[in-house]
Amino acid sequence: MDVTLKLYASLGTYLPDHAHKNEAVVSVDDGINVEALIDQYQVPRKECHLVLVNGVFKAPGQRSQTVLKAGDAVAVWPPVAGG
């Protein structure tokens, strides 16, 4: 199935080559969870501070429990802030 992986700020370097505007549609195994997706693209877990699935925050403890479905969007940031 396909999901959208979005990696921002310093994590952009872990995106696959076909990524455009910090996001890429990627093919993954059915039943994959958020943590496994992050691992698959070798994004260091400790740098994954803010993880949103379809815009909703997933705490570190929830990531391996959150199973993705086709069309989901996973967006990840290192520690950032502004205002």
Binding site: K6, Y8, S10, L50, A75, W77, P79, V80, A81, G82
Partner: peptide
């Protein structure tokens, strides 16, 4: 601190746009 030591100097407040 990763935010004040790295995130803000590199990307500024504008990093919030996509967040």
């Amino acid at each position: 601190n990763a935010v004040t030591g790295q995130g803000l100097p590199t990307y500024g407040t504008q990093v919030l746009m996509n967040v």
